[in-house]
């Protein structure tokens, strides 16, 4: 009866022979720490089915969720950043760009496209947090500016989904001026009386909040997204006190009067369509 006796002791499998669970089979919610199968998580639009925490997703996912049949025409896909300042911190900026490109499969922190939302044509820019924290450098500024130009040219609504830590330090004042540039373009869009909907997602801070993200005719956010100008850590250091619960979250911003409404990801597409149809864009652009 050898199975009653432990004949071999300890773990004998060699490291190279071990059979790990395939990566990404399970997703552990960052909020409630509950596991969900990746499949279920994806079917639930990357929202935790247990606590409704909206996971961070990028342009690929948003395009898929929002555009009809996931079809769209991407704009300026190959725009890449220069290194105007020969910036070097712990590694040179071009190297940082390269490794980010490899890791994320993206060319920079925003993708822009023209597509249809329930049959309604829109110009849309979606930021990718995976690329250097979604930071805004020349490419982000330029692509968003061009997408706004396209909205003006085709007389179609503009939608920007923000998800960014702010300006990109490695482009210093170049990145600062992107705030002025995108805001100037939005002023033109405003004069052309074309609707602009800004969608703020977790996180939207710094120079993004202080430029296009707060300039929507309608500002919408996903639930519980961190939205603010200064980061919570800096504010905490400045005032020397703990921050109140829920400070700088979507619900807080709506309460303070800076968001029109908060919308869950599963309702986002229909809500956008609803708002845009009431604006009557489809009639004017038909």
């Amino acid at each position: 009866m050898s199975w009653f006796k432990r004949v071999k002791h300890g773990i004998l499998t060699k490291t190279q022979d071990k059979k790990p669970t395939p990566d990404g089979l399970w997703y552990k919610c960052k909020e409630c720490k509950e596991p969900t199968s990746t499949k279920e998580f994806e079917l639930n639009l990357w929202v935790c089915p247990k606590c409704n925490n909206h996971g961070r997703i990028g342009s690929r996912e948003y395009f898929n969720i929002l555009f009809d049949e996931g079809k769209f025409k991407e704009l300026d896909a190959n725009l890449t950043s220069g290194d105007p300042l020969k910036f070097e911190d712990t590694k040179p900026y071009p190297q940082r760009l390269e490794s980010s490109k490899k890791k994320s499969g993206l060319n920079d922190a925003v993708r822009t496209a023209i597509g249809k939302i329930n049959g309604l044509k829109v110009s849309m820019a979606v930021m990718d947090f995976a690329f250097i924290g979604g930071s805004m450098g020349s490419v982000v500024g330029e692509k968003i500016s061009r997408a706004i130009d396209a909205a003006i040219e085709h007389k179609i609504p503009m939608i920007i989904i923000s998800k960014s830590g702010g300006a990109r330090m490695m482009e210093a004042a170049f990145s600062l001026m992107q705030m002025a540039k995108t805001s100037a373009k939005l002023a033109l869009l405003d004069e052309a009386k074309i609707p602009y909907i800004s969608i703020l997602t977790d996180p939207t801070t710094g120079g993004i909040t202080a430029s296009f993200a707060m300039l929507g005719d309608i500002n919408i956010a996903e639930p519980k997204a961190l939205i603010g100008f200064a980061g919570p850590r800096i504010i905490k250091e400045t005032i020397g006190k703990d921050l109140p619960e829920g400070f700088q979250r979507s619900e807080f911003l709506q309460e303070k009067g800076f968001l029109d409404f908060i919308v869950e990801r599963k309702d986002l597409k229909d809500k956008l369509h609803e708002v845009l149809s009431i604006f009557g864009v489809h009639k004017r652009t038909a």
Partner: peptide, 14 residues
């Protein structure tokens, strides 16, 4: 507007 629109450093590698 034109002046600020020109600011930036990028290339189109298409």
């Amino acid at each position: 507007i034109k002046k600020f629109s020109k600011m930036g450093s990028f290339s189109d590698s298409a």
